Simulated assay, not measured.
Amino acid sequence: MKDRIQRIEKQIREAAEKAGRNPDEIRLVAVSKIKPAEMVKEAMDAGQKIFGENYIQEAVAKIEEIGSTSIEWHFIGHLQSKKSKYAAGAFALIHSVDSLKLAREIDKQAAKKGVVQPILIQVNTSGEKSKSGTTAEDAVELVREVATLEHIAVKGLMTMPAFFDDPEGARPYFRELRLIRDRIAALGFPGVEMKELSMGMSGDFEVAIEEGATLVRVGTAIFGARDYSAR
């Protein structure tokens, strides 16, 4: 696993340098969903610092077992409002806030715990009905409204484009997210930091980096294929 992580980090550096970017601006999120805690610990031993989870109960169990003193946990999956009580305060970053309803519930739960929860707004740049996310057209207004919530801190945007055999197919969707980020940043909403762009996975993260990604979510290339029948 150490070799796989080092290979991905090398690819990240090379993609950043190709795009004239500082490699230190880009962080690797190791997507550990459906993988046992033992594999997370192995990745930690190899130097990995950020882990992304998709399923709240599984994530909470891993956090309880492993802790979060030396690593960051990010929630990257679809989050139901009713499960916000488990997510608020448990994650360094929630990538997948796609509605004002969800944001308000996270804010409510974070207030109960006396914390400010960092989040990203998820934008469905591909327009696929099967994917979560606010529309590109509504993203600005959603950020404007979420910015008024006291126990949430908007740190940027996230997207998950359609799958393409050729990673170049995803480039327009990554570029669109960057342009949306730039438009929102120019508006200067109080308390909003358009610092992070979470985009790119195992098959297309190099293209995402060329288009401005600061967080790339890589699972299969680190942990191997997943057996969803085990869920």
Results as ranks from 00 to 15, higher is better:
114 G>D: 12
189 F>Q: 05
91 F>P: 01
152 I>M: 01
196 E>P: 13
65 E>T: 02
208 A>T: 07
187 L>C: 15
199 M>P: 05
123 V>H: 03
196 E>Q: 14
9 E>Y: 03
189 F>G: 05
206 E>Y: 15
143 V>F: 04
149 L>H: 02
24 D>L: 15
71 I>C: 05
76 I>H: 00
84 S>R: 06
106 I>N: 01
177 L>K: 03
138 D>F: 10
220 T>V: 13
176 E>A: 11
1 M>E: 08
47 G>I: 07
205 F>W: 12
122 Q>W: 09
231 R>E: 07
120 L>N: 08
155 K>A: 07
45 D>I: 15
109 Q>R: 09
210 E>C: 14
216 V>M: 06
61 A>D: 13
103 A>T: 12
181 R>P: 09
6 Q>H: 14
110 A>V: 09
92 A>L: 04
29 V>E: 03
29 V>F: 02
153 A>R: 04
92 A>P: 08
102 L>E: 03
117 Q>S: 07
118 P>R: 12
86 Y>T: 13
22 N>D: 14
210 E>S: 14
164 F>T: 01
223 F>N: 06
81 S>D: 12
193 E>K: 15
133 G>T: 00
18 K>C: 12
15 A>Y: 04
220 T>C: 13
131 K>S: 01
192 V>F: 12
20 G>M: 04
220 T>Q: 07
131 K>N: 01
133 G>V: 01
104 R>I: 13
67 G>A: 11
73 W>D: 05
161 P>G: 13
109 Q>Y: 07
224 G>T: 05
178 R>I: 11
214 T>R: 07
121 I>D: 03
144 R>M: 11
174 F>V: 01
62 K>Y: 09
136 A>L: 15
189 F>E: 05
123 V>T: 02
180 I>E: 03
8 I>Y: 02
214 T>K: 13
84 S>Q: 08
77 G>K: 00
137 E>M: 10
15 A>F: 02
103 A>N: 08
185 A>T: 12
173 Y>V: 04
16 A>C: 04
41 K>P: 07
208 A>K: 03
77 G>I: 00
175 R>I: 10
134 T>N: 09
178 R>W: 06
214 T>Q: 10
78 H>D: 10
21 R>Q: 04
163 F>L: 14
131 K>W: 05
11 Q>Y: 14
108 K>N: 15
7 R>C: 15
180 I>D: 00
221 A>W: 06
